[in-house]
Amino acid sequence: MSAALALARGRLSLVTALPFVLLAVLVVLDVSLQPALLSRDQIGIEVATAMSLVLVGLGQTVVILTRGIDLSVGGMMSLTNCLLATRVGSGTGSLLLWCAIILLVGIAGGAVNGLLIGLTRLQPFVVTLATWSIFNGVALWILPSPGGHVPNALISLPLGDWAGIPRMLWILAAVCVLWSLLRRTRTGVQVYAFGSDPDAAFLSGVSTLGVTLRVYAFSGLCAALAGIFVATQTASGSPTVGAPFILNAVAAVVIGGTSLFGGRGGFAGTVAGAFVLTLIAEVTFGLGINSNWGVFAQGLLLILAVAVNTGSELVQRRREERR
């Protein structure tokens, strides 16, 4: 019994360690290719490049922890990005007001997903596929082709440092602290309980609708945050900016070791996964090969990671069944 537990722990630690090992390898590879990357400014820039994915990944992590999936994040990112690029005026007041509105749009869009999934028991993928299409359409409606205006105050947000440490590292740390606080809340515990065993969670008083609603609303909020943040990188709006993030957010979560069967994993792995995916693109750049290899490798890495993730889960289940 204890041996089996140790084995199970062994598997877990292998899957949890994997993203960090991958990340370390990529960092070493990338820095040896481009030593200039180790400067303080460059580290800030690197973190800023990965940040949009980290944010979408945070929402997707929570959704996948409850055995769901949110395909609509790409549409929501594009929609909020277009709102930002077309609506924000020149003043700081206008920027803050619209950022608040955009975050509310994210929460509302996500809540619609959560309500539909929680109330009708429809499969998450079909509901979020439909809302992905709707959000995409609205984004195209707001801004038919790339353009618009992003205020300078926002573009300069990721640049510079506070107390000698790149501003982006503070922001990343803040997001991680936020996660560790959220995880300890009542809802955080319920998310894990629900993901491990929905029936048992229901019987111990966890409201299925309540958890689903909050989880998808949170994912919508994260996508909206990413939609705002990505504007600091592109300095313009685009109705298709979110498209690559659907695959990459799922990939970051899966590479990060969060189980697709729910209830196991967390944000730390996702952050590592997001940086792995971002660094792959960097390394192809450093190697001087076609940067499109990066896109290719990202898709391949997702399939490999899912195979490892699912495979180890199945092996472990079989072991448990045999006992």
Partner: peptide, 29 residues
């Protein structure tokens, strides 16, 4: 991928979609 590896169809085909997109971008630049 779906039958042998046991990957969920959504994630398997999403990944293949990404691989195809990457491959096509590589070929056409």
């Amino acid at each position: 991928g779906v039958t042998l590896l046991g990957v969920s169809p959504i994630i398997m085909t999403l990944g293949v979609n990404g691989v195809l997109q990457g491959a096509l971008l590589l070929i056409t630049n």
